[in-house]
């Protein structure tokens, strides 16, 4: 949608962000070893920069490219992933989504919106012991599919549902 260059506006060099992110983590009293726990469960193929925020995956415009940048794995559709989205969203700026799954060993959950300028909306990392039950609110530019990805036991599972949007949430 619109000009490609606009999205990079206002972005500071990664180094500064990493430094500040580091400060935030230090403020939490997280030692390096503690932070490493989350990364250990992550497939080596995934392109995750040092700051942890998957910049490349968030820059992808197609579903397949985002999936590749995020996990480097193919997703297998699964009925064990329960995605709860509204059938019709009157306001695309606030679309509640929630996901639960009965799959064991879930280490990551991601939400993609196929009709958005950038498909990846949110990606969550779960430590062992964290329940595979996540809710949040997303923006949707137009009627399209919400795709949920669950990384469980090193395999990627997905499910998708269409949401009809009557008023887009990305302006313009």
């Amino acid at each position: 949608m619109k000009d490609d260059t606009v999205v990079t506006k206002g972005r500071h060099p990664a180094s500064r962000r990493q430094v500040l992110h580091g400060i935030a983590l230090a403020g939490l009293g997280m030692v390096a070893g503690g932070a490493g726990v989350l990364d250990a469960a992550w497939p080596a193929a995934a392109a995750v920069p040092a700051s942890g925020w998957p910049q490349q995956a968030f820059a992808q415009k197609s579903e397949a490219a985002a999936l590749k940048a995020l996990y480097g794995l193919a997703a297998e559709p699964s009925d064990k992933v329960a995605l709860d989205v509204p059938e019709i969203a009157e306001n695309g700026a606030v679309v509640p989504v929630s996901l639960t799954t009965s799959l064991p060993d879930v280490s990551a959950i991601s939400f993609l919106v196929s009709g958005n300028p950038f498909t990846l909306a949110a990606s969550y990392r779960l430590s062992p012991g964290t329940e595979a039950d996540v809710s949040c609110r997303l923006k949707m530019a137009k009627t399209s599919d919400v795709i949920a990805l669950v990384l469980a036991g090193g395999k990627l599972y997905s499910t998708r549902k269409q949401v009809k949007v009557t008023l887009g949430g990305c302006g313009g």
């Binding site: 700026a93 958005n116 329940e131 996540v134």
Partner: peptide, 24 residues
């Protein structure tokens, strides 16, 4: 002090974000 959950968000997350999760 032990990390339980990390969220990575893009610009497609709604204004004044809401998030819910649970841990054991």
């Amino acid at each position: 002090g032990k990390p339980v959950f990390t969220a990575y968000w893009g610009p497609a997350v709604s204004k004044d974000p809401y998030l819910k999760f649970a841990f054991k």
